[in-house]
Structure formats: structure tokens, C-alpha cells
Design a protein around this nucleic acid. Structure first.
Lengths: 248, 248
DNA sequence: ATTATTACTGCAGAAACCTGCAAATACCCG
DNA sequence: CGGGTATTTGCAGGTTTCTGCAGTAATAAT
């Protein structure tokens, strides 16, 4: 195998997984450790990756690390972790958009086998990095601010889909008013998404709790799991406990 | 065996396998290493392949993970500029994916009023930054490597669309073989895209010229505009001039 | 602090590359 | 047809690049 091909392979791995281990590359490319190390050194000299002890990291990933609020990121990662416990091999899952869902998409186990339907291009791009996940992007009008597809065309397509789990980010959740939103179209969309799933999971950072907006999407009784960064028994969550709704 | 025959053989190997080893060619063509090396040097000078230590690689597969590659970026910006001259207010446009198209999406005039259909989530995200552009993302299976939607569902939706202009990036363009590609699904997709547009525009950095891959998408006569970073009267473009095809 | 893993350095054999040259071949034109 | 020119090809030699190894230093992990 030519050196250039090795470099391409390494960069593909980096772009795919944001990191590579020297030891993995030794096996995959069937050359000595020294050769790999020299390759990484060269690519690092060319500024294509970030070399670390044991392997290398994607440059872009590393630089974009600090562009987000650490606290919120921590919270979202914690939410993602919990949500992953609901996802099993073989499942068919529908997701919305939003930063929480994107974070979830980044945290999935490497070898998860599943089918994801999504209305968010950014989620689709993240999910495409996993080798055994099939991604279906549901198309339609593209919403400029929320960066998801919406409109009648999307809803029509949703009508033909049956999924195990629907994962939704939240703009507002309230003990009596349930899930609410401000935009009519998004509202319709979320209803359609929930109705094609057996179970609905709401991902919600605690800031969004106890807020009620104008348009009702669904009552708490239509939600099966509520995931926040808080512990399930935390006081602010008491009001959300119902017989249908499991808090994680 | 004549030199020209060797060259043809080498190019066939390259188009077939995306790579050749000098040592293999020595055996297959039964000439000395030096001859092969000289052949590869010539073909490389003619920009038909990418020469590396030990052999040569197909130019179309020479993945440029270098996103800071100034030359290519300059070229793409120059292509984008020219392409923009074809886009008028009120048009309905269909675009593919790829870095050239994304660059184009970044360079559009701020106040353009138009409707864009696209199969590329990344293009959709870029386009959503413009206040007066309506974006429709065509959904379907999501291709992990090319980061576009594809498959029957996409093609079905394309059948219902009529657009003024179809903008396509290129993996390979050749004077006699026309537009070619390596993947069957992508191939079908590009055909469908072209057939729902009144005019087709091919955006093609000069590196991708004079390359022919296995599967034919369309002959030159089905292309209405060819845009490269070169001046229209540049010699490498002479072979592409036909009565239908305008070079910009 | 000890241990295991990973990194670095210099070295050497192998492979690939380049340059100049000469023999062989093709080509041109009187 | 024949002599002169240009092109092509292989070879000899010297140079560079590639790659694995061995021994040692550095780094994580326990």
C-alpha cells in the first residue's frame, strides 16, 4: 500500500471518528508502529491533525471544543448519556433537531446498529459517522432558524413511518400545560412525529422546565420518558411524575 | 508495444482501480522500470493522474482532506463567482452536494430571491443564512461518504419537480465520455436531477477534467454550461466546446 | 514507585528514483 | 534509397526515500 493511500485512510478515519489510535492503524494498515507514527507526524506537520500520545485527534473537533458553554454542554452530555440507555440495537428511531439531540448523536456507542429517521440535517451528518446506523433524512421546506425540515411534505412522509422511539428536544415543558411551543408549523410537526412513534422521549435541560408557551403540542400523558440533567428524584421534577411518565 | 498503447493501458488501470503500482506495470507491460516511470511522469505532466512514490493514483480519488488548501479554495471561489452570474432573482434551482457547491452557497449575493431544492444537508444549512432564499431539502436515505440524500425516494420526489437550473459538482469529466461517476446510485440520482431541469450547469475544477470513470451519467450534449476556474478560451477546454455547451 | 505502554533516535537493507549515456528504432527529406 | 535527426528505450551509477528493528527515553496508569 502506498504512503499516500495510508494518509488518505488515516484522514478518513479522523474525519469519521474524530480520533484514531496508533495501535488500531497498525492492524488496519498492516505496517509497523514506526511507520504509522511517522505518518501521523507528517500529517501533523501538515496541520491536518492533532497528534497525541497513543494516536491523533481531528483538528476541527479539537478547536471547536471551546465554542460552547461548558455548563450547558455538560448538562447536555449528561442528558445524552441517559437517553442512550433507552436505545437498543435494531431499533427504529425518529429524532427532531436542536443542540441536545445533536449532542446525543455524538455520544452514541460506536457500534450501535439502528435506523434513524430525522428532520435535522445536522443530526443526519453526525449520525452518518457511525458505521452501522442507517440514516434517513426526511425532506421538505427547510426552516432557517431551527434548522429542521417542516411543512406539509414532511408531515405526509411521517404518516408513512412507524418507529419505536421518538426523541424530541424541548422549547418548554410545564406540569399542567405539558409540552408547548410558539410556532404553529413546528407544533404540527411535533404532533405528527409523536403520533408515529410507540414511545416518546422528551429531552429537556432544566432551564426549560416550568415554562408554558402559547401553543400546545401534547399533554404530559402522551410522553413516556422525560430526561433532564437532574437526578430523577430532584424536587423540581416532582410535579412531572405521572403513571405514564418515567423520569430518568 | 507503442507508447500510446501503454499510456492507454495505464489510464484504463487507473480508471478501473484508482491506483497503479510501478512494479505491477513493469510486469504487465514487459518494459523496464525506467520506461514506466517516464510514462507516469508524462501522464502526470498532462494532469491525467497523480504520481506518488511507488506508483500513481487517480486524480478524482485524490481526496483533498486539506480544507485549508488555498489553491483549491481559490479555484472554487472563482468557479462560484462565475456560476452566480447564471442565477437570477426568482429562479428555481436544484443543487447537488460537494465542496464546490457549498462554496457557491457561501458566495451568493446577500439579497438574492430564489428557491433552492437540494439533496445536500450542508448546502441547505448554508443557504438558510440568506433571508430571501427559500430552501427545500429533498429527503431520503442519507449517504455516509458523499453526505447527500439518495435512493428511490429522492428520485421519486425529483420526478415532481421542475426547475430552471440544475447545478452539479463533478467527479469526472471527459471530452468524449462526458460526465461519469463510480457509484450506481449516485449515477441514477444525477440523471434524475438533470432531467427535471431546463438547463444543467456543471461545476468542475480543472483537476477533474479529462478523467473518465466507469459509469456514464450524461454526454456533453446534455450539459448546457461548463464552469471551471480556467478562462473559457484556455487550451484544456477546447475539446469541450460543442454547439450546445457554453463554457464560462 | 513501579510497570506497561508508547515515543523517539539512529541505523541498515530494500526499494524506488533520477541523470546521463548509448544502442536501437522511427521519421523526414533530398 | 540513404543519411541525418529525433525519439524511445534500457542500463549503469549514485541519490533519495521508505520501513522495520533495537535500544533508550518519555508518558500514562496503577
Amino acid at each position: 500500500m502506498l504512503k499516500k493511500e495510508r494518509h488518505d485512510f488515516i484522514m478518513r478515519q479522523i474525519n469519521l471518528h474524530n480520533r484514531v489510535l496508533t495501535s488500531d492503524l497498525v492492524e488496519q494498515l498492516n505496517v509497523s508502529e514506526d511507520t504509522i507514527r511517522r505518518d501521523l507526524q507528517e500529517l501533523s506537520d501538515l496541520n491536518f491533525l492533532y497528534k497525541v500520545h497513543g494516536g491523533a485527534l481531528s483538528k476541527s473537533y479539537h478547536t471547536s471544543y471551546d465554542d460552547s458553554n461548558v455548563y450547558a454542554k455538560e448538562a447536555k452530555i449528561s442528558i445524552a448519556r441517559k437517553a442512550i440507555s433507552l436505545i437498543k440495537d435494531g431499533m427504529v428511531i425518529l429524532t427532531g433537531g436542536g443542540t441536545t439531540i445533536i449532542e446525543l448523536a455524538k455520544q452514541l456507542p460506536e457500534n450501535l446498529k439502528a435506523t434513524f429517521f430525522t428532520i435535522s440535517p445536522l443530526v443526519a451528518v453526525e449520525l452518518s459517522k457511525y458505521p452501522h446506523i442507517e440514516v434517513v433524512l426526511i425532506g421538505g421546506l427547510f426552516a432557517k432558524n431551527s434548522q429542521i425540515t417542516y411543512g406539509g411534505h414532511v408531515i405526509n412522509q411521517l404518516a408513512d413511518i412507524q418507529v419505536d422511539l421518538c426523541l424530541l428536544g424541548t422549547s418548554a415543558l410545564h406540569p399542567t400545560d405539558g409540552l408547548t411551543d410558539t410556532d404553529w408549523e413546528i407544533n404540527q410537526l411535533k404532533k405528527a412525529m409523536m403520533s408515529c412513534a410507540q414511545k416518546t422521549v422528551i429531552l429537556c435541560i432544566s432551564e426549560k422546565l416550568n415554562i408554558s408557551l402559547r401553543l400546545k403540542v401534547a399533554s404530559l400523558s402522551h410522553i413516556h420518558y422525560l430526561i433532564t440533567e437532574l437526578a430523577p428524584q430532584d424536587p423540581p421534577l416532582h410535579y412531572y411524575k405521572t403513571k405514564n411518565l418515567e423520569i430518568i
